[in-house]
Structure formats: C-alpha cells, structure tokens
C-alpha cells in the first residue's frame, strides 16, 4: 500500500513539473518582449534583460520561475487589472468558485442518488424510464444548454430568479447556476446508482438479509445502498473534470466573479499571465483530487491496487 501511494504521489509531482515546464515554455515562446517601448535603444534593452535575468540560460530561468510559483507569486495582470498581482485577483474569486462547484456537486449527488434509487427499486416502470431519460440528457448535453434554458424560462420569462449573479444575495442568485452545473453530476450518479443497485438487489446476501426478517428502509439503505455505493469513486474523476469545465461557461453566462469567469476573460483579452496562473491552479486542483481519488480507490478495493501495480511492473 505504501509503495502504491508513493508511486501515485511521485507521478503527481512529475505531472506538476511537466505542466510548469509547458506553461513556462508557452510564456517563453509567446511573441513580443516585456520591453516594447520604441524609445529604448538596443543597448538599453540589453541592460534591462541583464537586470531582470532574461538572458540567463533556459534552465536557470525555469527554476527561478518554479521558485516564484512555489512562493505563490504568479506575476501581475496586464490587461484585466493593470499591474495588480494575480494573487490579489484570486483572493475573492477562488472561494466563490469553490462554493459554486461544491453546491453543484452536492445537489447533483443527492438528487442523482434519489433518482437512481427510485429507478432501481421501481425497475422497468415509468419511474425507471423517466429517470433513465433524465440521466441520458444530463450526460449528453453540455451544461450551457441547461444554463441558457433555465435562465430564459425561470429567470427571464417567469422572473423567479435573477439572470445574473449578485454578491449581495449570493444564495438566491446562485440557484440557477448551481442547478445547471449539477446536471452532469446528477445524471452520472443516477446512472451509476441504478446499475449498482440492480446488481446488489439481485445478490445472495440481499436474499439472506431479507430472509432474516430485515425489511423496509433499513434493508435498502443499510444492506443494499451501502454496498452499491462503494465503487462510486470511479465516477468522481469525470464528474470533477466536468464540473470544472462547466464552471467556466456557467460563470460567464451568469457573470459570477469566480476563477472560471476570470479565465474566460483572460483568454479573450490576451492576458497571458492570468491565463497561465489559472491553468496552473486548475491543474493543481485536478491533480490533487485525482491523487486522493486513486488512493481512496486503492484503500477500498485492494484488487485495483494490485492490478495497477501489476500493470506497472509488466
């Protein structure tokens, strides 16, 4: 087990280093230089390059960059907020995004669980069909389809919810974005719960539990659902990726001041420093979550750990 965790951590670290190399290369290859003032002569530019160490060998500059990032210094923004350190820009935005993503995953997980449970218990009935249709739609359609539909019908036509996010009333104005963002998680978890529950309900130990006289909610929750949900970690990966990707679009549609919206704006306004900083943050979150998921997976199911180790050696 220790060996497995060590290996996984090592890969994650290597992945981060490779990522940073890519980001650094990108900055390096971008056309233009920081000193594009016409008044500067060639000698002056050379002096400036020396002063900021820009003519040092590639490796030295890379490690200097690494050091800065580890210290949390991503440089300053160019266009979005001139010369403001990116760290300051992020301070309020990261919590907003995490809150939105968390709400969406929680809502999606709870409704998805319920839908999947109903579909499995009422297998081959109308409920099952409805739940299946909802989950197929949720898995197939991009979250902005839901966002636009909700914002037009419930927001604009009915006027129940505000069209745009308002930090003065963070709850009511985050209802629509949360629902739109949660569709994929909901669909995925509903699908998953349904299949696993059907499997478990057919198993021998359920028959045993029933013949021992256990019935009702206790049978379903204690004996069936708990076993059905162990492999749910498998869907966590795609779920988190989708929520992260979706948040970019959703935050733009509802103009939520989170990191997704900032990312979109930095791309559109060519603010490379911000784009790169956010790419790094997104990757870091992703790599971290995947690491936790993989380790949990190994703890819960030893077969995975062993087969993964096998495949690494072979």
């Amino acid at each position: 087990m220790k060996k497995y965790i060590f290996k996984r951590v090592l890969y994650s670290v290597v992945a981060i280093l490779v990522l940073l190399l890519l980001l650094f290369l990108m900055l390096d290859l971008m056309p233009g230089s920081p000193f594009n003032d016409d008044k500067l002569s060639a000698e002056q530019i050379e002096v400036l390059y020396q002063k900021y160490g820009l003519d040092d060998p590639f490796i030295i500059r890379y490690f200097r960059y690494l050091g800065n990032i580890i210290k949390g210094d991503f440089g300053v923004s160019y266009n979005i907020a001139s010369n403001v350190p990116i760290t300051d820009l992020l301070q309020t935005r990261v919590p907003t995004s995490i809150r939105l993503g968390g709400q969406a995953v929680l809502l999606g997980a709870s409704i998805g669980l319920l839908l999947g449970l109903i579909a499995a218990l009422k297998h081959n009935t109308v409920f099952d069909t409805i739940a299946t249709i909802i989950s197929v739609l949720g898995v197939s359609l991009p979250s902005y389809v839901f966002a636009l539909a909700l914002s037009y019908t419930l927001g604009y036509r009915a006027g129940w919810f505000p069209l745009l996010y308002d930090s003065a009333s963070p709850f009511i104005s985050s209802v629509l974005p949360t629902v739109a963002l949660s569709m994929f998680s909901m669909a995925n978890i509903a699908r998953f719960t349904r299949t696993e529950m059907l499997e478990v309900l057919r198993s021998d130990y359920m028959l045993l539990a029933e013949s021992k006289g256990i019935s009702g909610p206790k049978l379903i929750i204690r004996h069936a659902l708990r076993n059905a949900l162990i492999p749910i970690i498998t869907v966590l990966g795609p779920l988190i990726v989708n929520t992260m990707t979706g948040s970019l679009v959703i935050e733009k549609i509802f103009s939520i001041p989170g990191i997704g919206e900032l990312m979109v704006r930095s791309i559109q306004q060519n603010d490379y420093n911000v784009t790169i900083a956010l790419s790094f943050i997104y990757s870091l979150m992703y790599i971290g979550i995947m690491l936790v998921v993989d380790i949990l997976y190994g703890i819960i199911d030893p077969r995975i750990r062993l087969s993964k180790e096998d495949s690494h050696e072979s």
Binding site: Y11, S12, V14, A15, V18, L19, L22, L23, M26, L29, M30, V241, M244, T245, L248, M263, I267, Y272, T275, I276, S279, Y282, S283, Y286, I287, M290
Partner: peptide, 17 residues
C-alpha cells in the same frame, strides 16, 4: 502524465499558441 493535466488547460494553451 499527459492525462493528469486537465484537458481544458492543454487545449486552451494549445489554441492560444
């Protein structure tokens, strides 16, 4: 390693370049 960097980031950076 390629898989542990989110698609979103790779794709965005590629297109910017």
């Amino acid at each position: 390693i390629l898989n542990s960097i989110p698609n979103l980031v790779i794709v965005t950076l590629m297109i910017l370049v």
